[in-house]
Nucleic acid binder design. Structure first.
Lengths: 117, 117
DNA sequence: TCCCTTGGTGATAATTTTATCACCATCCAT
DNA sequence: ATGGATGGTGATAAAATTATCACCAAGGGA
């Protein structure tokens, strides 16, 4: 997930995917949005550890890459919602699979890291 | 994929998965190994852009995390092979899915990044 | 006017990951 | 002993990401 100086290889699916979703929070953000948490204010509360500033940047990138679309409701107070686009939705099965794999691997990783320490 | 000071959340599958495979080269490495490229020397040649040093570090981490196992053949010249463990193999469908998603998204990303530039 | 809520941004530091370079070890052939 | 092939590591620089802090804007209510 670090490739600005080293350009993206558009012929490598892994390279493309890493560019778009290979960062610490993006899977979490998309996951929460898919569950109905769509407002920045709520996302900050639901995603433990993320800060407002970082969330904003990630949302902006996801929007730029076409995975999220932003809707502004001119209510008061101002309401903004981020929704998954078709591309964004197409990622959900993958996110779910990664999450499940991680859950299944969790105990093994814990054992390994505690043993060496 | 940055979480040493910020500890891993073992209850979050995404967090666990990111810790283990969330880095620039790991999917590529596992992918090549699954295709039969198992020696460090060959991996360096097949994975365009990676350097020997970086590959070694990634292999070591993958081995530590239990996704690869290392076999040393005392031949001459020395031969070392890295093979997927059961856990490593369990990742293959995921890697394949990510790769395919990336391939499908490639043209969209290219269009977006070229348009804004 | 002052404050609150929500959404957003710029500048900068702190962290982490990647890259580069030099170097070592083994085994064998010349 | 010299050199080539393979595998490996330490130190350090470079690059990228993430975190922190301060600040701004719009709209409405007290």
């Amino acid at each position: 997930m670090y490739q600005r100086k080293i350009p993206i290889d558009y012929d490598c699916g892994l390279s493309v995917a890493m560019e778009v979703v290979g960062s610490k929070w993006k899977f979490c953000i998309l996951d929460e949005i898919s569950k109905g948490i769509k407002r920045p204010k709520d996302l900050v509360n639901f995603i433990s550890g993320i800060t407002k500033r970082v969330l904003q940047k990630q949302l902006k990138e996801l929007e730029l890459h076409g995975l999220l679309e932003k809707t502004i409701y001119t209510e008061v107070p101002l309401r903004v919602e981020y929704n998954l686009t078709t591309s964004g939705k197409s990622l959900l099965p993958l996110i779910s699979a990664v999450d499940q794999w991680g859950m299944g691997f969790s105990s093994q990783l814990k054992t390994i890291l505690e043993t060496e320490a």
